[in-house]
Amino acid sequence: MKIAFDAKRFFHNTSGLGNYSRDLVRILSQYEPDNEYLLLNKNKSERGKDILDRSNVKFVETSKGNFSRQFKMGKDAQKLGADIYHGLSGELPLKWDKTPIKKVVTIHDLIFVRYPEYYSFFDRKIHFWKFKKAAETADKIIAISEQTKRDVIEFLKVPETKIEVIYQGCHKAFKEQQSQEFIQGTKDKFRLPERFILNVGTIEDRKNLLNIVRAIHETNIPLVVVGRKTKYYQKIAAFLKKNKMENQVIFLEGVSMDELAVLYKRADIFVYPSFFEGFGIPVIEALFSKTVVVTSNTSCLPEAGGKDSVYIDPNNYLDLRAKIQFLWENESERKRREEKGFTFVQKFNDEPIAKELINFYQKII
């Protein structure tokens, strides 16, 4: 098979959709090497260079100009003789010629519908129109969780038979063992405390960092936060200043993937009380790192966390505090849940996901 991908996110997104795109192409090219994988975009970057070095992965410079991704990229894939065009981030081109090609789109979430207050009116309208159009155009849709599948059916009015759930995995760094020298270097670089809890993700309302900070107020539990700051950070900073907690919370940015893997492995607990996620990759990253997870009992997070993660009501910081303190003070319970969680998370390993994807593509053809 020859499979063409919309590679904009592959080359130009550092997290989220970029990680999904790079991991999907990486595992397909590794475990299904007999196919040809085409990365279509107007330009490329250094991201994913190791994947591009593989003989079955090829960058194809597509037509340039405004809206070329919408009006020309699909036709470019057809001219290349691709069997399948896969839009990796909820979008498909608007124009095609008559050359046969199967169209697939991955939809990650419809958070802009469920939580419109986090988006501008214009962004909501554009996102909805693009996702709705892609869902109609696609021969098949990949939803990254059962939660997302339910949302696609409900909000985009797509028949269930058109959607298949294929989970995503996470970066290989979380499954590898970094050297002792690198671990020590990371500890020194970020001045990490001996024990701490960890939160990873953009610092925005939906991720609910404020309730973690409220939960550790009047405790001696250090918190390390990794994520890009938005205006919501000002609420956190104000709470920390008011309660003299500035030295209890460490904010980190510009963390490499290997350094992040060390942070997960060094943490006693990973805390992720998000109000809503399409999947929740940080939960998977923590479980592969053998770190116990405390997360919300909402959306898809129980799908990602399995039955041995600890679940809380994200609106209730006292519930969160009680669960954190219990695990912080009970090493044997942490270890028990870490081992169970590590067994559960193997379902999100690269090879089984690659097999699912190829079977999915073959069924379409």
Rank of each mutant, 00 (worst) to 15 (best):
K231G: 01
R228A: 11
L260S: 02
L263R: 09
K231Q: 07
D188S: 06
F174M: 04
I141W: 00
K241L: 10
K157R: 08
E160Q: 11
I197V: 08
I250G: 12
P193H: 07
I163G: 00
Q248P: 03
I203T: 03
D151Q: 04
S256P: 03
E136Y: 10
C170S: 14
N243F: 14
L223E: 00
Y232Q: 06
E181A: 09
P193L: 08
P193E: 06
K242G: 04
Q234M: 05
F174K: 02
Q248I: 03
Y264L: 05
R124H: 13
K157N: 07
F155R: 14
R191P: 00
E160K: 13
I221K: 01
S179L: 07
F196I: 06
E194M: 06
T137M: 11
I250L: 15
T137C: 06
F251C: 10
K244M: 12
D139M: 11
V200W: 15
R228F: 10
K125M: 11
N208A: 03
A173S: 00
Q177M: 11
E246K: 13
G169Y: 05
E181S: 09
A138V: 08
N247E: 13
N211E: 07
A135G: 00
V213Q: 02
R206Q: 11
H171D: 15
D205S: 10
H127A: 14
K189V: 09
S179T: 13
R214N: 13
A215F: 01
F190E: 11
K229N: 13
M245L: 15
A237Y: 02
D139F: 12
I144E: 12
I183D: 01
N199L: 13
C170A: 14
K140W: 09
T148C: 15
